[in-house]
Amino acid sequence: MSHSPLPDAEITPALVARLLQLQDITLNQADLLHTTEHVQLLHSHAARVMRWSLDEHIEPAPEFRP
């Protein structure tokens, strides 16, 4: 899968089923449709995050302690 977020029209239940298959997850058709909506939402958020200009000097914060 590309790391580029996709527009909604390209995120189909068939694509999501293949992505889930890579994780060894199988859902019924109704759940697949709902999951597709959530994947579309995640791609819209990802588009916003990935458009942000990357500064290689800013380290990620997975162990964040303010």
Binding site: M1, H3, P5, V16, L19, L20, L22, Q23, I25, L27, D31, T35, H38, V39, L41, L42, A46, V49, M50, W52, L54, D55, I58, E59, P60, A61, P62, F64
Partner: peptide, 20 residues
């Protein structure tokens, strides 16, 4: 289930944005 499909690059970029 949707969350399991995210590429690592998105996660890392999101964590980078968090620092900023």
């Amino acid at each position: 289930a949707a969350g399991t499909t995210l590429p690592a690059a998105w996660y890392i970029q999101a964590q980078r944005l968090r620092t900023w």
